[in-house]
């Protein structure tokens, strides 16, 4: 296995693990962590692909993704805290005020 392939597979693994956590974990914080994994998968790809690409676009893009991740985490935790105050839980499945009323 050469280096590029290895890095790509690692990226796929991270992305899919993130996806798996998003779909299976019940706790919103766990979901948030899954999302972080997906973002890291993208970062890994960008850095790896930047190895064979002129310029530093990949790394700079990764840098901005990290900034975006910080913002998302900050906003996410804030929203989560507010929801927790109302519901005393962070399990989205237990929020039952909004659903189809037929």
């Amino acid at each position: 296995m050469n280096k590029t392939d290895l890095l790509f597979y690692l990226g796929v693994f991270l992305f899919c693990s993130g996806l798996l956590m998003v779909f299976t974990k019940k706790n919103a914080i766990m979901i948030l962590m899954g999302i972080e994994l997906m973002l890291n998968a993208a970062n890994l790809n960008l850095v790896a692909f930047n190895q064979s690409t002129p310029g530093l676009d990949g790394q700079l893009f990764a840098l901005f993704i990290i900034i975006v991740a910080v913002c998302e985490a900050a906003v996410g935790i804030a929203i989560l805290l507010k929801a927790y105050r109302f519901y005393q839980t962070v399990v989205p499945d237990q929020f039952r005020d909004l659903h189809e009323k037929l």
Partner: peptide
């Protein structure tokens, strides 16, 4: 913390991974 839909989650993940690879 609990987790649900393992089967669905794993099926989806494996599907996505194989498409990507």
């Amino acid at each position: 913390t609990a987790a649900t839909h393992w089967f669905f989650g794993i099926a989806l993940t494996v599907g996505v991974a194989s498409v990507l690879i």
